[in-house]
Simulated scan of single mutants.
Amino acid sequence: MDARAVLDKAFELADHVSTLMSTALEERGLTPGRAEALLMLHRHGPLVQRQLATYLRCSPRHVTALVDTMEQHGWAERQRHPADRRATMVELTPQGRQHTEWMETHRDRAAQALLGEVDPTQLAAFVEVADRLIRTTGHDDSTSVDPTRT
Rank of each mutant, 00 (worst) to 15 (best):
R57K: 10
L123N: 06
H81E: 01
L115E: 02
E71A: 13
R97H: 06
R107L: 07
E91Q: 10
P60G: 04
G116Q: 11
V63Q: 06
A53N: 09
Q49M: 10
T69F: 04
M40T: 09
E36I: 08
L41Y: 00
T54H: 02
A124E: 13
A76S: 02
Q72T: 08
D84R: 13
H42T: 14
Y55L: 08
P46C: 05
W75F: 15
M89S: 02
L123I: 15
M70G: 01
A87H: 00
Q95K: 15
A53W: 11
H81R: 03
M103N: 02
L92M: 14
L41F: 01
A65I: 09
A53R: 00
M70F: 07
E77Y: 03
G96L: 07
T54Q: 13
H106R: 14
M89F: 00
R50V: 15
E101Q: 02
V127K: 13
P46D: 02
L92N: 05
R107G: 04
Q98Y: 08
A35S: 13
V48A: 06
T69G: 08
L47M: 09
F126R: 13
H106F: 12
L52R: 12
Q49K: 14
P82S: 08
L92H: 03
T88F: 03
M89V: 04
T121R: 05
L56I: 05
A65W: 15
H42S: 14
A113G: 11
R78D: 09
A37N: 03
L56K: 11
R80G: 11
R43L: 01
D68I: 04
Q112Y: 06
H62F: 11
A35G: 07
P32A: 13
R43I: 07
T105G: 00
L56Q: 10
R109Y: 06
T69S: 12
Q98W: 05
R61M: 14
A76N: 04
H99Q: 15
R109C: 07
E27H: 09
W102T: 10
L38E: 01
A53Q: 06
A87F: 01
M40C: 11
G33K: 10
L114T: 09
E104W: 14
L123R: 08
A83S: 11
E71H: 04
E128S: 11
G33S: 14
V48I: 07
T93C: 05
P82N: 05
H106W: 15
D108R: 09
Q72E: 15
G74I: 07
R57S: 12
T69H: 00
G96T: 12
T31C: 11
L114G: 03
R57V: 03
V90S: 00
P120T: 08
G116T: 00
